[in-house]
Design a protein around this nucleic acid. Structure first.
Length: 273
DNA sequence: ATTTGACCCTGCATGC
DNA sequence: TGCATGCAGGGTCAAA
């Protein structure tokens, strides 16, 4: 899926086309997403106006202006939201269309259907999906000190620890691998056995790599596209993800590939300790 | 309590 | 060419 930079790229890409627009029609072609599409989606959306889009972790929040209703949209592993024109023929796996008064269509595409769209509980603080999320990685609340404190007594490997949404949100498989490389930390190292100063480096690395990826419009591996259908250009900046067997850009050693928590992990055994 | 593994689903690359 | 296998930007739940 889209990790945080890809969701943020999507939000920025579609916002100019959808914000302030009235919804004139909703077409649901496939209701069986990870969470079934709410049956009342069309009737509640049609006639409503879209407010300012927000993002929390990898969720996109779509408020309906002047009402307490807000859509919670998650792109799963293979989901994308794109701007289409009225009349563009839907392709395979284009599951939902939100037709707007300006002639554009917000179109949801998701081959694997791990994503979903659902109503956010009126109170964001009490929504079970958002309530226990850790801080945004680009916020002041995300610090090396926090990583250090939460890691005490945790035997799990550093990489799955960094990908734990209660620790910090939005860091998925690509950017966890990249941040650990930048910080020189072995992804297998027990979280409890990493010193405070090294966590400060890791927090800084995670912030830097996510910010750089947003600037580049995200990472396109197979199928990620922005709201306007553009790929992201961060893939060419990846140091380790997907580069197993290739030379480390820093020391030249061949990058290793292991599985950690069911996820592929690539790292440099020389630079990461 | 923490941690691991299975699972949701389709598409694609690989190997026989 | 066909078929089987395994893996892919995530998150949730049960079981160990």
């Amino acid at each position: 899926m889209p990790e945080l930079p890809e969701v943020e790229t999507t939000r920025r890409g579609i916002a100019p086309y959808v914000e302030g627009q009235e919804i004139t029609e909703v077409r649901v072609r496939h209701t069986r997403l990870r969470v079934p599409v709410p049956e009342d989606l069309p009737e509640r959306l049609v006639g409503a106006r879209i407010g300012t889009l927000r993002r929390r972790a990898k969720y996109l929040l779509v408020p309906l202006a002047g009402t307490p209703g807000t859509l919670l949209w998650h792109l799963g592993m293979s989901g994308s939201l794109r701007i289409a024109q009225v009349g563009d023929t839907p392709k395979k796996h284009d599951h939902i269309d939100v037709v707007l008064a300006n002639g554009y269509v917000l179109r949801y595409h998701d081959p694997r259907r791990f994503g979903f769209v659902d109503w956010l509980q009126a109170d964001e603080q009490h929504d079970s999906r958002l309530a226990h999320l850790g801080p945004e990685p680009l916020s002041e609340a995300f610090t090396g000190e926090r990583l250090y404190r939460l890691s005490r007594g945790r035997r799990m490997a550093a990489k799955p620890f960094l990908m734990d949404n209660r620790v910090v949100v939005g860091v998925g498989n690509i950017y966890a691998a990249e941040a650990l490389f930048m910080a020189g930390i072995d992804p297998r190292r027990a979280a409890s056995r990493i010193a405070r100063v090294r966590y400060e480096r890791l927090a800084g690395a995670a912030r830097d790599v996510l910010a750089a990826a947003i600037t580049q419009g995200g990472t396109t591996l197979r199928d990620f596209v922005s709201g306007q259908g553009e790929p992201g250009y961060f893939a060419q900046h990846l140091n380790v993800y997907g580069r197993q067997g290739q030379p480390c850009r820093r020391c030249g050693a061949l990058l290793k590939h292991i599985m950690l928590g069911q996820r592929a992990s690539v790292y440099c055994a020389v630079c990461q300790r």
